[in-house]
């Protein structure tokens, strides 16, 4: 099968790779780049385990071809902690026990990052609707809501204090 060369920046590193046009972005991330934190939980774009940020917006990477990411920026769960410090969302999920098996967690966190970017201080209902494209079978969602609230608070406090 013919291939096409794409250049994609993932977590700040540029990659130029020959890929089949049919290759899904999620497989490109997992198989070609060995970034296995992004998971696959369904084949109908329902579960959201594969959620990553594409040019800053959350997408389900099972629903995007790798070639469509050509020239774009991708952030995955592996790019969330910076300088050894967990992202406030990662910290929130730990502190509020927002994860159990951990399989939906990376996608959930990437989705929540986009949610907080658009709405820095969401209500419980806004959080619930905001993550309704991501399935979790373990937590019953209560603590995911609390984790997002924890992160929102922390990120707003950081914003308020000039560096």
């Amino acid at each position: 099968m013919s291939t096409k060369k794409i250049t994609v920046t993932v977590n700040g590193t540029s990659h130029s790779v020959e890929v089949e046009p049919r290759l899904l972005l999620v497989h490109f991330i997992r198989e070609n780049l060995n970034l296995t934190g992004t998971h696959i939980g369904c084949d109908t774009s329902n579960c959201g385990a594969c959620t990553v940020l594409l040019n800053g917006r959350s997408v389900k990477s099972c629903t995007v071809f790798a070639v469509q990411a050509n020239g774009k920026n991708i952030k995955t769960i592996e790019g969330m902690a910076e300088g050894g410090a967990l992202h406030p969302l990662q910290e929130g999920f730990k502190e509020e026990h927002g994860l159990q098996c951990g399989f939906c967690t990376p996608g959930m966190i990437m989705r929540c990052a986009d949610l907080l970017e658009r709405n820095p201080n969401p209500t419980e209902e806004e959080i619930r609707w905001g993550i309704s494209g991501n399935l979790c079978r373990c937590t019953g969602y209560n603590n995911i809501v609390k984790a997002v609230q924890y992160a929102a608070k922390k990120m707003q406090e950081a914003e308020a204090v000039p560096a």
């Binding site: 998971h39 769960i77 592996e78 990662q90 994860l99 098996c101 399989f103």
Partner: peptide
């Protein structure tokens, strides 16, 4: 106690079956 297993799951370092190559 906060969970000891969370560190790897939160940073995409879990080792699930499809991660094995």
């Amino acid at each position: 106690m906060k969970r000891k297993e969370d560190a790897r799951f939160l940073q995409g370092k879990g080792n699930y079956i499809d991660d094995i190559k």
